[in-house]
């Protein structure tokens, strides 16, 4: 059971081609073909970079969500937390500018605040789930509401905007690039890589799968279940914080609508990627593909005038279901 998270073990079980493993990649390839057919602009580097940069927020959050879901939990608070952390980061930086002057040191402090807040929120969620013995769904439903109201309160129901002198300093973090690749994409890649290493190459990753698969058995196997679950939530909080760090420089603002429904998008990305919603089996690279697919669907719909805009939601829903059906349908036949 512990080994079910290892790619080679999975491959051994099914002979030859494993749809569960490769399904998401096939679906992605299908979408890319569809996109190209819809509008040749789709494959232009500009559009590809747009799509990937946009994916970075949900993608980074979804990598964290992969761990929480694999360990049998769920975190509904990520979207609200992203909004709240963005708000606090902006307020902090605005407060520091008069004393310290606009500059990178203020940005660094703002980022630190975001990371601290993310970890703290993860800790709160994790402690309530493990020590408080409340279902993760309820705990994070609660904190989702709390964070959302806190940002609305901070913003007086309006919008928090970053000081304009700070904006120009911070802006390159979203709009800048290294060797032609925008920073958000680089950060996304690094987070995914580290996430994959943790999931597939460390004890912690295997423990997550073990707990999600059967918590009692994991406990009898001398796994410190509470500690692993707590760490998974904190990892999720950290991922949200990293997303915030690149979200804030994009529009330099946070409001009650920031990060709305991000939790559902993150969960959808994880599931499209092949991770089981009930836990026990996690795929980080699948999650990355899932997140990219979600943005691609939006992008393709925006690039065509052929489909009524009223039907966008229906197309999105249908593609998500088909993508998951692709992997599950064949999996059950075996």
């Amino acid at each position: 059971m512990t080994q079910s998270s290892m790619p080679d073990a999975v491959r051994r079980r099914s002979s030859g081609f494993d749809l569960k493993l490769w399904g998401p990649f096939l679906a992605l390839a299908g979408l890319i073909v569809l996109g190209t057919l819809v509008n040749p602009v789709f494959l232009s580097p500009g559009n590809i970079f747009n799509v990937l940069t946009r994916t970075a927020f949900i993608g980074i959050i979804a990598v964290g969500a992969t761990f929480v879901i694999t360990s049998g939990g769920i975190d509904l608070s990520v979207g609200s937390l992203a909004a709240f952390a963005s708000g606090v980061t902006i307020v902090t930086m605005n407060a520091l500018v008069p004393a310290m002057g606009p500059g990178w040191h203020v940005v660094a402090l703002g980022m630190l605040v975001a990371v601290g807040l993310g970890l703290a929120a993860g800790l709160v969620n994790g402690v309530l789930v493990t020590k408080g013995r409340i279902e993760a769904f309820i705990v994070t439903l609660g904190t989702m509401g709390i964070f959302r109201s806190l940002v609305t309160y901070l913003a007086d129901g309006g919008t928090l905007s970053l000081d304009s002198s700070m904006r120009s300093v911070y802006r390159p973090v979203y709009y800048g690039s290294l060797f032609g690749i925008p920073y958000p994409i680089l950060l996304f890649a690094v987070v995914a890589l580290i996430g994959a290493l943790i999931m597939y190459r460390t004890r912690f990753g295997r423990y997550c799968a073990a707990i999600g698969s059967n918590e009692e058995v994991a406990r009898y196997s001398a796994i410190d279940v509470d500690r692993v679950k707590l760490l998974a939530f904190m990892l999720q909080g950290l991922c949200v914080a990293l997303a915030v760090v690149i979200y804030v420089p994009r529009l330099g603002s946070a409001s009650a609508t920031t990060g709305l429904l991000w939790e559902l998008e993150a969960i959808a990305a994880v599931i499209i990627g092949g991770t089981m919603l009930k836990g026990g089996y996690g795929r980080v690279w699948g999650t990355v593909v899932g997140a990219v697919m979600l943005t691609l669907i939006d992008n393709i719909l925006n690039l065509t005038g052929a489909i009524s805009v009223y039907l966008n939601g229906a197309i999105q829903g249908a593609i998500i279901i088909v993508a998951v059906l692709l992997q599950r349908g064949t999996a059950s036949k075996r």
Binding site: N39, N302, V309
Partner: peptide, 22 residues
């Protein structure tokens, strides 16, 4: 072209990016 941006900055940004490529 005409698309919904939900009276929201993030959606305005995304939809406009795609209009600009299109």
């Amino acid at each position: 072209g005409m698309e919904y941006a939900n009276w929201n900055r993030d959606d305005g940004f995304k939809v406009m990016q795609d209009f600009l490529s299109r």
